[in-house]
């Protein structure tokens, strides 16, 4: 489940943010620091999570710890789906 989730997230980020070198997308690295995601990009990620995984992201959950890296996203979505 987690591996599949990660692949879906990676595929979305690579495609939606046109990353030419997928190997450069470090699952643990900050997407903001890498410049891959900007302010609008965060909204696109949230929309993707809500649409694809059927979770609802609350205001208080919109923090880097949940959204700013592939691994953070995987953990966040996994937690939300369990909850």
């Amino acid at each position: 489940m987690s591996a599949d989730l990660k692949e879906k997230l990676r595929a979305f980020i690579i495609s939606n943010f046109y990353v030419s070198d997928p190997a450069s997308l470090d699952d643990g690295a900050s997407l903001l620091d890498a410049g891959i995601v900007d302010s609008t990009g965060v909204l696109e990620i949230i929309t993707f999570i809500e649409t694809e995984f059927g979770v609802s992201v609350e205001d208080a959950e919109m923090v880097p710890e949940n959204l700013d890296a592939v691994n953070n996203l995987v953990a966040f979505v996994t937690r939300k789906k369990k909850g």
Partner: peptide
């Protein structure tokens, strides 16, 4: 300064801080 994350003032706090704190 950056009210573009229209959905949530909380996200503004955390994410803009991460972005501009570099």
């Amino acid at each position: 300064l950056y009210p573009y994350l229209a959905r949530s003032p909380v996200s503004q706090q955390a994410l803009t801080r991460a972005f501009f704190g570099r």
